[in-house]
Design a protein around this nucleic acid. Sequence first.
DNA 1: TGTACATCAGTGAACGCGCGTTCACTGATGTAC
DNA 2: TGTACATCAGTGAACGCGCGTTCACTGATGTAC
Lengths: 233, 233
Amino acid sequence: MSDQRPADRYHHGDLRNALVGAATALAREGGPDAVVLREAARRAGVSAAAAYHHFASREDLVQAVKQRSLDLLTGEMRAAMAQETDTRAAVARPTDTSLAVARETAPVGNPASRADSARRRLRALGVAYLRFATAEPGLFRLTFGPRGRWPVAGTHGPHHTTTDPFRLLAQVLDELADAGAVPAERRPGLEYVVWAAVHGTAVLCLDGPLASADPAQRQQIIEHALDTIIRGL
Amino acid sequence: MSDQRPADRYHHGDLRNALVGAATALAREGGPDAVVLREAARRAGVSAAAAYHHFASREDLVQAVKQRSLDLLTGEMRAAMAQETDTRAAVARPTDTSLAVARETAPVGNPASRADSARRRLRALGVAYLRFATAEPGLFRLTFGPRGRWPVAGTHGPHHTTTDPFRLLAQVLDELADAGAVPAERRPGLEYVVWAAVHGTAVLCLDGPLASADPAQRQQIIEHALDTIIRGL
DNA sequence: TGTACATCAGTGAACGCGCGTTCACTGATGTAC
DNA sequence: TGTACATCAGTGAACGCGCGTTCACTGATGTAC
């Protein structure tokens, strides 16, 4: 799937997408500062001015890239969580292959096993987040830099108008609280605490002292961090 | 103390310092991208070319700002820790006003009280780090951005050739391990785990979803995060 | 104490760069009749 | 089915911007004799 326009056509047909694609590639290669409108247009095989029929400004284009990047992360986190849910469900009910999210299948088993399974899912979410960060450092820095596109909680009730990764995290923490693995008084705001710890680990791996560590050591720290967070709940 | 050169003098006398000072002010005001060599020279009352007698390049100047910023953070963390040490020492020995760092006065009291006091110091370090981040977001982003000036552990033995904040953290964690509050097998790499959690909290407060939260809520999350980390050790 | 001179730390003008953005335009498309 | 025309999505040249950096230079300083 090339973003390049076919040479024989005057109209591109899907230029907006092509520009976002090219800009995303730029971000992937060089992070936030590498997202250059003129270069994205060049890669799409189009004049720079053409971009202004689709975006009000460079910033507008960058926003679109951030959104696309966040969508990618969301997809991976959903997949990681669904897989963990499947695994668990498969143990209990071998024939169930549904992709239903955790909440719908959670109230199964005794509290201890429910807590265990929620902890596994929480860990899977963290692993997915960190995998994305290390696999796509450019996109990660763009999405979570200053004026980034952070997932945010909605203001209208729980699990409503909420961007997905945040919602997934909230869901798992609710399960842990329901199973008694997190005292009720500690539940409020816990999303931010867990997120901060995982995000900080990503930053240390990408830009911090762990950037120059060898992958094995990095992986060890990641495990250590996830263990510590879960233990601290 | 103005960085501006006295109008009647041709030679500045302390231009290098003045440039770093002006550049630091720029970083304070606008973060990494705001550190513009020409503007720093302007503020120092000097031509842009003059800067090249003191720095090889803009990047060189930026490095100096990063170092200065890290020194500021180091100072605040040392102070926070010394104060917590003093408080503790004052309880035990009211007349002792020395600024000796914790390690030198640590082996006092039973393990439980030593652990408690180390936990208080760990918390104080975290609070100081977060206070710096929120008080100086521009410097913080510069110092801990990509290609930042991260404190790093030295390679020659423990607590050797180590930048200070890292060393302080390692010290407190050693105390906790000595007091039995951290199982020995979990001690290696724990600096990075704790640092990641605290750093992530800072990022969420500066650039993330907590940036738009009111200070009271932010403070609450901070306390929650520190509690969770310490509990998870 | 005075003078010649090397050295250091400034000046100001200029360069090239690549960017975001605007402009008047033109080619292609599709719809009304 | 053909034609007029509005609309949309491109072009390419140009603009201004502020930056980092270089250059040949000059004023101030301090040291050797």
